[in-house]
Amino acid sequence: MSLESVTRFFQDHAPDISVIVTEKSSATVALAAEAHGVKPEQIAKTLCARVGDRVILVVMAGTARLDNRKFKDLFGTKPRMLDAEEVAALTSHPVGGVCPFGLPQPIPVYCDLSLKAFDQVVPAAGAINAAVHIAPDRMVELTGAEWADLAQAPKPEADA
């Protein structure tokens, strides 16, 4: 059902974007990057968190990590990640295929600024072997998302 709802979402709202189904799993950032020939940070991973009595989705660069302080500053509470069953029940997407498209009911979406580093990102598309290639601003437009600064600052690389 999930892959179908995402495919239908794009047919209805962005027929120029095709859902890409791969033979191999793209359920992790590393697998998705390999399957789609992009850098791991270009994968747009979707996190599902509880904020008080509501649920939100946070979409961020694949290698980015959620900054608990930034999250608390924005939402007034620490992030509480949902378990796999809750995620599937609320989004209709399995873990590894979670995305902000084709949801059964509206869920607030926040896109982290880490996505702005790329012309195209690759979020999942409702299945562990499906994704789309999309410009970050277009994803925000299609999902009604808000931009937010929620990722930890990148650690400086050590001198070689």
Rank of each mutant, 00 (worst) to 15 (best):
C48K: 03
A49Y: 14
A49V: 11
A49I: 13
R50T: 10
R50V: 11
R50Y: 05
R50A: 15
R50W: 11
V51Q: 14
V51E: 07
V51C: 09
V51Y: 11
G52I: 09
G52T: 07
G52Q: 14
G52N: 09
G52L: 09
G52C: 09
G52P: 06
D53M: 02
D53V: 06
D53W: 12
D53N: 15
D53H: 10
R54P: 03
R54H: 15
V55M: 12
V55S: 09
V55E: 12
V55C: 08
V55I: 15
I56V: 13
I56G: 06
I56P: 04
I56H: 06
L57I: 04
L57V: 03
L57Q: 07
V58I: 15
V58E: 00
V58A: 04
V59L: 07
V59G: 01
V59K: 00
V59I: 11
M60C: 14
M60I: 07
M60N: 06
A61N: 05
A61F: 10
A61G: 10
A61M: 08
A61Q: 06
A61R: 10
G62D: 03
G62F: 11
G62R: 10
T63R: 12
T63S: 11
T63G: 02
T63D: 13
A64T: 02
A64V: 05
R65P: 00
R65H: 13
R65Y: 02
R65D: 08
R65F: 04
R65I: 03
L66F: 06
L66W: 11
L66G: 08
D67C: 08
D67S: 03
D67Q: 08
D67W: 11
N68M: 09
N68Y: 07
N68G: 13
R69K: 15
R69T: 14
R69P: 02
K70I: 04
K70F: 06
K70C: 03
K70S: 01
K70V: 03
K70Y: 03
F71C: 07
F71N: 07
F71A: 07
F71D: 04
F71G: 08
F71S: 07
K72D: 12
K72L: 01
K72W: 00
K72E: 14
K72Q: 09
D73C: 00
D73H: 09
D73N: 14
D73P: 02
D73Q: 12
D73A: 10
D73E: 13
L74W: 02
L74N: 02
L74V: 06
F75R: 13
F75M: 14
G76M: 03
G76N: 03
G76C: 00
T77D: 09
T77H: 01
T77F: 04
T77V: 14
T77C: 14
T77I: 02
K78I: 01
K78E: 06
K78N: 05
K78G: 00
K78V: 01
K78S: 08
K78Q: 07
P79S: 08
P79N: 09
